[in-house]
């Protein structure tokens, strides 16, 4: 437990010392969302219709591009072998890495997302649910992303491969999150979708430590 906590603190400290990485991902989030405004056109009705989907897709892609360093930097400097050999359980350390990744990538995205949603003319009654879906859904993105990142450590074609592995796993999160916000905007209850989103998060939390730890053990063999 202490080792896991130390790992979270280490990753947070690293992120604070190189804020450029987090800021780059935030900039990507805003710029990519802006592209959609240009691509679809500035009509408020057209943008409002797709705002939820754009915020979510772009947040998902921003999470994705932050993933390829998740374990690769450890593998490059050799500390991955130390993590695998450490007396602490590797499953717990994987969760620590996910938590740190979520705090340094997803949380800033969530903070910025209302601004992006405003730019995209999201209807006012959707904001609270959008934030709630992001809070409920992004942990699943970090967790499933960790599986993909652990599987592709040392792979020849890292980035595109990671996207191919992780994006199919992200689709359910995207579907339920967007459905919840759309239901809220349409005046229906978003609760069933939110429960499914939360359930998916529990599922991700259950399998990620084992799958990612198994992958990391092979990577350091």
């Amino acid at each position: 437990m202490n080792a896991a906590l130390a790992l979270v603190v280490r990753d947070l400290r690293l992120a604070l010392r190189t804020p450029a990485e987090t800021l780059t991902i935030l900039a990507f989030f805003v710029i990519a969302a802006t592209l959609f405004a240009f691509g679809i056109g500035p009509e408020p009705q057209a943008l409002a219709r797709v705002a939820t989907g754009i915020v979510w897709v772009v947040a998902l892609l921003a999470c994705l591009i932050s993933l390829d360093r998740l374990f690769q930097s450890e593998a490059d400097d050799g500390s991955l072998d130390q993590l695998v050999l450490a007396p602490a359980s590797l499953e717990l350390l994987v969760l620590a890495k996910c938590l740190a990744q979520w705090l340094t990538t997803a949380l800033p995205l969530i903070v910025v997302s209302p601004i992006v949603a405003t730019m995209l003319q999201l209807p006012a009654q959707g904001y609270a649910t959008l934030l709630l879906t992001l809070l409920l859904g992004t942990p699943s993105l970090s967790l499933f992303g960790a599986i993909g990142a652990a599987l592709s450590v040392g792979a020849r074609k890292g980035g595109a491969l990671l996207a191919l592995i992780v994006l199919p796993l992200y689709i359910p999160v995207l579907i339920f999150a967007v459905a919840a916000v759309e239901a809220q905007i349409a005046g229906l209850s978003p609760r069933p979708h939110l429960f499914l989103l939360a359930g998916f998060g529990v599922f991700a939390l259950t399998i990620t430590p084992f799958a990612a730890a198994a992958a990391l053990r092979q990577a350091s063999e």
Partner: peptide
Amino acid sequence: YLAYMALNSAFDEPERGARASAVLALVG
């Protein structure tokens, strides 16, 4: 399936690709 095949052939050592893609097959 596509991800499985890509991951399977993404490593210099075929054993590593086989194990990594096996984990993916189970998750999928």
